[in-house]
Design a protein around this nucleic acid. Structure first.
Lengths: 107, 107
DNA sequence: TTGATATATAAGTGAACACTTATATATTGA
DNA sequence: TCAATATATAAGTGTTCACTTATATATCAA
């Protein structure tokens, strides 16, 4: 169980606002497919397809529970994105520093 | 100049590996379009189109310099992505904590 | 001025995307 | 057993994407 997920798939998965919202919902509580679909004005299959993309990206796990599927967040793949972003962190820190300096100068 | 950039555009921009690599290049040094295109096995217009997407997302700025265009990173829009990711940070911290506990237990 | 260089835009193409309706499958409860 | 519920998959469609070649524009250098 190498937890090997396509690194590309994560970026693709979070590129869609509906899927990002679903992930946010799952960060609050695990949910059924129906619950995850309910806030969105899309058909049930459309929601199911979004959940599939999230599954393929390794961002959620599913467990059958009666006739429901309980979806649970697996945030691990998001770590890749976070790590990538860290390459840029010093830049916006620098910008904020520059702003801070400027504010100090005029204050 | 409200620096208002489409929030969606950022996620779309970083969804492509070539564009992510370009952003990484620009985090090292500002570069011309040709320099940015050179590592990739794509046509000059394809690279130019990628740069356009990055521009539209507000991730780069351009300055004409003779017959070159100097591209410079503007990491600000990435902050949105970073902020969004922070909703999940506690989860992977929790996971790492659990791992840490486990390691402590067996060590 | 003319040719080379740097870059962008236009137009076209195939693949991927997000969605739909229709249908299949499994589970529950009457 | 049968109808309702929960979900996934299949098939089709219009849009977006990443790419190509062709072309336009601006600058530089001879």
């Amino acid at each position: 169980m190498t937890s090997s997920h396509n690194r590309e798939a994560v970026y693709r998965a979070i590129a869609d606002p509906t899927r990002r919202a679903m992930l946010l919902m799952l960060s609050k509580k695990e949910s059924s497919a129906t619950e995850l679909a309910s806030p969105f004005d899309i058909s049930q299959p459309a929601a199911s397809q979004h959940l599939r993309v999230l599954r393929d990206a390794g961002l959620v796990t599913v467990e059958r529970k009666g006739r429901e599927r309980r979806y649970r967040l697996d945030p691990a793949p998001l770590h890749d994105v976070h790590n990538w972003l860290e390459h840029f962190e010093r830049f916006w820190n620098a910008k904020l520093d520059a702003l801070g300096n400027y504010l100090n100068r005029i204050a």
